[in-house]
């Protein structure tokens, strides 16, 4: 497997797992209290930071980079996948704006954005894997 495809697989697993860990810790901290009243920002920071570290370690353990620089195909795949992932970021930003317009608690806006980042990362990874396995469609 290409190192860049392996990195995409790692990202596809680590990002959603990191978010699920966050939700689990958040619910555990809330206990019987309303989840909105729970301090969440430190959990967000720790799970994002943890996901970055786990991704780096997983990539090293699974073989690391083979030292080759990205070639035009790698750059095209990366660009196309980022475009697809970014479309979800735009949708998430719009959702957060709508929540803010309706004076929804900041907890939900922050969590909607966090979920958007996770889903965008997941979609980007899936697109990268798909383009590598199936092929890169012409413009």
């Amino acid at each position: 497997m290409e190192p860049l495809e392996r990195a995409a697989w790692v990202q596809a697993v680590v990002a959603p797992v990191g978010w699920l860990v966050y939700v689990g810790l958040l619910l555990a901290r809330a206990g019987s209290e309303p989840v909105v009243s729970v301090q969440y920002w430190d959990l967000v920071a720790w799970t994002i930071g943890g996901a970055v570290v786990v991704s780096m370690v997983a990539n090293m353990v699974l073989g690391g980079s083979d030292g080759t620089k990205p070639d035009p195909r790698d750059r095209e795949i990366d660009g196309r996948a980022q475009q697809i992932g970014n479309s979800l970021l735009v949708a998430g930003a719009l959702a957060a704006m709508v929540l803010a317009m309706f004076d929804v608690d900041g907890f939900w806006i922050a969590n909607a954005l966090y979920l958007t980042f996770v889903l965008s990362s997941l979609l980007t990874s899936i697109a990268q894997i798909g383009f590598r396995r199936v092929g890169v469609p012409g413009w």
């Binding site: 290409e2 080759t68 070639d71 195909r73 092929g135």
Partner: peptide, 14 residues
Amino acid sequence: VTRQTVIAIEQGRY
């Protein structure tokens, strides 16, 4: 380029 890129071109995937 990478060998994977040559393979992808040969197979019509890129």
